[in-house]
Amino acid sequence: MPPAIVAEGLTKYYGDTPGIIDLDLQVERGEVFGFLGANGAGKTTTIRTLLDLLHPTAGRARILGMDSHRDAVAIHARIGHIPGDVTMYEEMTGRELCRYFANLRGIDTGPEVERLAERLDLDLDRRIGAYSSGNRQKVAIVQAFMHRPELLILDEPSTGLDPLMQQEFYAMVREARDEGRTVFLSSHILPEVERVADRVGVVRASRLVAVETVEGLKAKARRHIQIVFSHRVDPGTFAAVDGVLEAHPSHDGHGVDLVVEGSLEGVMRVASGFGVENVISHEGDLEDAFLALYNDHDA
């Protein structure tokens, strides 16, 4: 069975402006691949090129073993897609929209649509124009999953969902993987990708700078944490701990700000001796979280 996605030197320019440059990437069957990058890094351009919405300036892509441009219709029959910027026919209800798209796919997805809507707590009988953006996102999820496609290509799919619904959505992604289906999802949120993906590709400034397993990523990613103690603790105590890159006193006195690479285990072991009141983990911005990866690449 050919890989789910193969990109070879895939390049897309808008005039002089680069979208994605020279992307080489392989996504295997049955994995969840996270495509991570800041806003404007090239995630959506890549996805839209894979889907034949954009024509590559150079290079090519094969989806499920077929040419992304020449065999676009055959590919589209076997994939599900959530666009990055979800707008839909405002005059239709969610149910009508799903029925319309099912009709265009030439299949009956009625029961699956009901099941998915129930799972996401979505009322299918209201006009899409009257939905909140979260509910609109749920409709987008339902239409992408309803025909149980072999490959799901999802552009920032959890946008607008509340935390409970995000959990439900991640569960759906994992179930799809467990059934042997493939998921390619883009995100700019590291914890989200950590939670669901098997492997992660990181894109910055139109180039793929790293492909890592999630374990490898966790080992390399830097995070900022603040530990608040019941009394003053010398930051120097942590300076020598495994993985700690920086240690400073907090502004409010009773805490320590740390920059840690990889596991927090060593830090926690030391901290537990001092009466920890609170641990605050800052997600930090993506640039920072991936400094390690980028540095590897640049070197």
Partner: peptide
């Protein structure tokens, strides 16, 4: 114009 093109043109219709 309406922003629905990405949904329609990723369906299995040419």
């Amino acid at each position: 114009h309406d922003g629905t093109a990405d949904l329609v043109f990723t369906l299995p219709i040419s």
